[in-house]
Amino acid sequence: VIAMPSVRKYAREKGVDIRLVQGTGKNGRVLKEDIDAFLAGGA
């Protein structure tokens, strides 16, 4: 999974398994917005 360390930390704090999140950034990078969208109700 491609993600910046700050995004990985954010996901950990929110209790999200970053491997389950679909990245929308360049080359499938997971963004902070992707974590929020995942929490809001889905992949």
Score class of each variant (00 low, 15 high):
13 E>K: 13
13 E>Q: 13
30 V>A: 03
38 F>S: 04
24 T>F: 03
27 N>T: 06
30 V>E: 00
7 V>T: 06
6 S>Q: 10
39 L>G: 04
35 I>L: 04
20 L>K: 13
2 I>P: 08
18 I>N: 00
8 R>D: 07
25 G>E: 02
22 Q>I: 14
7 V>G: 02
25 G>R: 02
23 G>F: 02
35 I>F: 00
43 A>H: 14
22 Q>L: 12
30 V>T: 05
21 V>P: 03
9 K>M: 09
17 D>Y: 04
3 A>L: 05
17 D>K: 04
27 N>G: 14
38 F>T: 05
10 Y>L: 04
9 K>E: 15
19 R>A: 11
26 K>T: 11
40 A>M: 13
20 L>G: 07
33 E>N: 10
25 G>H: 03
13 E>P: 01
23 G>D: 01
22 Q>P: 13
3 A>V: 08
38 F>I: 07
35 I>E: 00
9 K>T: 08
14 K>V: 10
40 A>D: 11
13 E>R: 12
15 G>D: 07
32 K>Q: 08
30 V>M: 03
18 I>E: 02
38 F>G: 03
7 V>W: 03
16 V>P: 00
9 K>Q: 13
21 V>D: 00
1 V>F: 06
32 K>D: 04
29 R>M: 13
36 D>E: 07
40 A>N: 13
32 K>T: 08
38 F>V: 08
7 V>P: 03
38 F>H: 09
17 D>G: 02
3 A>N: 06
33 E>D: 10
14 K>S: 07
33 E>R: 15
24 T>W: 03
18 I>A: 03
27 N>P: 02
33 E>F: 08
10 Y>E: 02
33 E>A: 14
35 I>H: 00
23 G>M: 02
26 K>G: 08
37 A>S: 11
27 N>V: 05
6 S>T: 10
34 D>W: 00
20 L>Y: 11
6 S>M: 08
10 Y>N: 01
11 A>D: 01
28 G>I: 02
24 T>I: 02
3 A>S: 07
4 M>A: 15
34 D>A: 00
20 L>E: 10
21 V>F: 03
39 L>R: 06
7 V>F: 02
41 G>I: 13
42 G>N: 14
6 S>Y: 11
10 Y>T: 02
42 G>F: 14
37 A>N: 13
22 Q>W: 09
25 G>Y: 02
10 Y>A: 02
24 T>Q: 04
28 G>T: 04
12 R>K: 15
25 G>D: 03
27 N>H: 12
31 L>A: 05
8 R>V: 15
41 G>C: 08
31 L>Y: 07
28 G>Y: 06
26 K>F: 11
1 V>Y: 05
28 G>H: 07
27 N>S: 09
20 L>P: 02
13 E>Y: 10
2 I>F: 05
35 I>M: 01
14 K>Q: 11
14 K>L: 11
2 I>K: 07
9 K>I: 10
17 D>E: 07
21 V>H: 01
34 D>I: 00
